[in-house]
Simulated assay, not measured.
Amino acid sequence: MEPRLAPGTLVVADDTSFASMRPYLDHVRDPANGYRSVAFPVEDGMEISCRL
């Protein structure tokens, strides 16, 4: 599905403090993968990423 995301698409991930989320976070936080991503510090964590 990722190649079909239009520029400007927002992706929101929940429970980002869980160890199982590490591969996802590594992906969206790497600028080479085409996202700008920020952590949103609530309870178990959230990550808001924008497809560039």
Rank of each mutant, 00 (worst) to 15 (best):
M46P: 00
R22D: 14
T16N: 03
I48M: 10
T16G: 06
H27F: 15
A19K: 14
L5I: 07
T16P: 08
Y24P: 02
A39F: 04
S17V: 12
D30L: 11
P3H: 13
L25H: 11
G45C: 05
D14F: 02
D26Q: 14
V38M: 10
P41M: 06
G8T: 08
P3S: 14
I48K: 04
E2Y: 10
P41F: 03
R36V: 14
P3K: 14
D44M: 04
D44V: 02
T16Q: 01
T9C: 09
G45V: 00
P41L: 02
A13V: 02
E43T: 06
V11I: 12
G45E: 02
A39R: 12
T9I: 05
H27V: 03
G34M: 07
R51K: 15
V38E: 11
R4C: 07
I48T: 01
A13R: 06
P3W: 10
L25F: 13
R4A: 12
A39M: 06
A19I: 05
R29G: 14
E43H: 10
S20D: 12
V42I: 09
R36N: 06
A39P: 00
Y24V: 10
L5Q: 07
P41E: 10
M46C: 08
H27G: 00
Y24W: 15
V38C: 01
P7L: 10
A6W: 07
A32N: 03
A39N: 03
V11H: 05
C50G: 04
C50T: 15
C50H: 08
P7Q: 10
G8W: 12
G45D: 01
R51G: 02
A39Q: 08
I48F: 04
R4T: 05
P3T: 07
E2P: 00
E2T: 03
V42C: 05
P23I: 00
D14P: 00
P23V: 00
T16Y: 01
L5M: 15
I48E: 01
T9P: 02
A13G: 07
A13F: 13
G45W: 01
F18G: 00
N33C: 05
M1Y: 10
R22T: 13
G34D: 04
A6S: 12
S37V: 08
R4E: 08
P23R: 00
S17E: 14
D15C: 08
L25R: 15
V12R: 08
V28N: 04
D26N: 12
G8S: 07
D15E: 13
D14C: 10
A19Y: 08
S37I: 05
M46S: 06
D26P: 00
V38H: 08
P3Q: 13
P7S: 11
A13I: 07
D26A: 15
F18Y: 13
M21P: 04
